[in-house]
C-alpha cells in the first residue's frame, strides 16, 4: 500500500499531464519528454550536465558543512559566540543566494567557482541554524550526568554534546542539501555553459526545445529525490535512531 499509493499518484498526474498537453504547442507530452531524456542520455550530454551540477554541489555543500558544523557547535555551546555571531547569521540568512549572482560573477567570473559559492551560501545557513539549536537543545539531564561522571573538555563534545545534537544536525544537513540542489540550477542559468540549469536555459534559447526543458526539470526532480533518500539513510543510523524512534 505504501508503495502502490505514491506510484499511483505519480501515474495519475502523468496521465492528466498527457491529456492536457495533447495537441498543445506550449507544453510537451510525456512521450516527447521521455524521447528527449533518451536522446540526451545517448549522446552523453545528460551525463556531462548532471556531473557538472553534482560536482558544484559537492564542493559548495562540502565547504559549507566544514564551516557550518563547527560554527554551529560553538554558537550552540558558548553564549558569547552566540551573542557575537547570531545577529550576523540572522541578517545574511534571508538574502536569497540568487541575489548574490552579480557579485559572484564579479568575483569569480565565468567559472565553476560562482555556482559553488552560491551553493555554499544556500546550504551554509540552514546547517548553522540546525547545529546551533541542536546543541542548545541537548537535554540538561545528559549534561548533568556527564558532569557527574567527570566528563569534561574535548570528551564532553565528542561523547555527549555532538552525539546529543546529531539528530538535529542531520536534519539540517538534509535541508542544506535540498537547498543546495535548488540553487545550483538557478546559478547555472547565468554565465556558465554546463550543468542542468544551463541545459534548460540553452534548450530554450537554441531552438525552443521545450521537450528538453521539461526533460531537464524531470532529471532535477529525480536526482533531488535520490539525494534526499541518501540523506534519509543517515537518520536510520542507530546512534541517532533514538530521536526519531517515537512516532514512526
Amino acid at each position: 500500500m505504501t508503495k502502490i499509493l505514491p506510484i499511483g499518484v505519480l501515474l495519475g498526474v502523468t496521465a492528466v499531464w498527457w491529456l492536457a498537453a495533447s495537441g498543445s504547442t506550449i507544453f510537451p507530452t510525456p512521450p516527447e519528454v521521455l524521447r528527449g531524456i533518451a536522446g540526451l542520455a545517448t549522446d552523453g550530454t545528460l551525463l556531462r550536465h548532471v556531473a557538472a551540477s553534482l560536482y558544484r554541489v559537492t564542493f559548495g555543500y562540502g565547504v559549507a558543512m566544514l564551516l557550518a558544523l563547527p560554527l554551529g557547535i560553538l554558537m550552540g555551546w558558548y553564549r558569547t559566540a552566540f551573542t557575537a555571531f547570531n545577529p550576523l547569521v540572522q541578517m545574511l540568512r534571508p538574502i536569497s543566494p540568487i541575489a548574490w549572482i552579480p557579485l559572484a560573477i564579479l568575483w569569480f567570473g565565468v567559472s565553476d567557482l560562482s555556482p559553488m559559492f552560491l551553493v555554499f551560501l544556500a546550504s551554509f545557513f540552514p546547517m548553522v541554524l540546525a547545529t546551533t539549536s541542536g546543541v542548545q537543545l541537548v537535554e540538561r539531564e545528559y549534561l548533568w550526568a556527564a558532569q557527574n561522571f567527570g566528563i569534561t573538555g574535548f570528551k564532553l563534545f565528542t561523547h555527549v554534546i555532538i552525539p546529543g545534537a546529531l539528530p538535529t544536525i542531520i536534519t539540517g544537513m538534509r535541508v542544506g542539501l535540498g537547498v543546495a540542489w535548488l540553487v545550483v540550477v538557478a546559478a547555472e542559468m547565468v554565465a556558465i555553459n554546463s550543468g542542468l540549469g544551463f541545459l534548460i536555459i540553452d534548450s530554450r534559447n537554441a531552438g525552443m526545445r521545450y521537450d528538453l526543458v521539461v526533460a531537464g526539470m524531470v532529471m532535477i526532480g529525480a536526482i533531488g529525490l535520490l539525494l534526499d533518500l541518501v540523506m534519509r539513510r543517515l537518520e536510520d543510523l542507530k546512534e541517532v535512531r533514538w530521536r526519531y524512534a517515537r512516532g514512526r
Binding site: E141, W144, A145, H159, P163, G164, W242
Partner: peptide
C-alpha cells in the same frame, strides 16, 4: 561541584541514548 563520589539517578533518566549499554558504562568508568 558534582563529582563521581556522589552519583545522581534522575527522575527522567539520563542514560545516553546515543550509546549502547556497554558504551554508557564504559564512559562512566572514565
Amino acid at each position: 561541584a558534582p563529582s563521581r563520589r556522589g552519583i545522581m539517578i534522575a527522575q527522567r533518566g539520563s542514560v545516553f541514548p546515543w550509546m549502547t549499554v556497554r558504551q554508557n558504562l564504559d564512559l562512566a568508568l572514565d
